[in-house]
């Protein structure tokens, strides 16, 4: 039985919408859910498509980071 994967993203470092964007990128390959836990967003990744041969956690975290940076830099100060 496949184990759920979790990843904690600090709320001061990652934007919720950016995380949701990243979840959207990968939602064909796994099931994602997100909840607030203290200072972090905890993302759970379930039911990863067995065809996926890459590192879904790593790729997801890079996308969440990249989307955060792009979103923050797009947002007028």
């Amino acid at each position: 039985m496949a184990t759920d994967l979790t990843i904690s993203l600090h709320r001061a470092m990652y934007m919720a919408q950016a995380i949701r964007d990243a979840m959207g990128v990968f939602d064909d390959f796994a099931t994602f859910s997100m909840e607030k836990k203290g200072d972090h967003y905890e993302v759970t990744i379930r039911d990863v498509d067995p065809e996926v041969d890459g590192d879904i956690v790593g790729e997801f975290s890079n996308f969440a980071l990249a989307h955060t940076i792009e979103r923050k830099r797009r947002t007028p100060k």
Partner: peptide, 22 residues
Amino acid sequence: PLDAVYGAAYALIDRAYVLLDK
């Protein structure tokens, strides 16, 4: 500033999976 940390982290995402924490 956090933005500089972002920029530096972004520069590594082609070679590493990057996770920022505080």
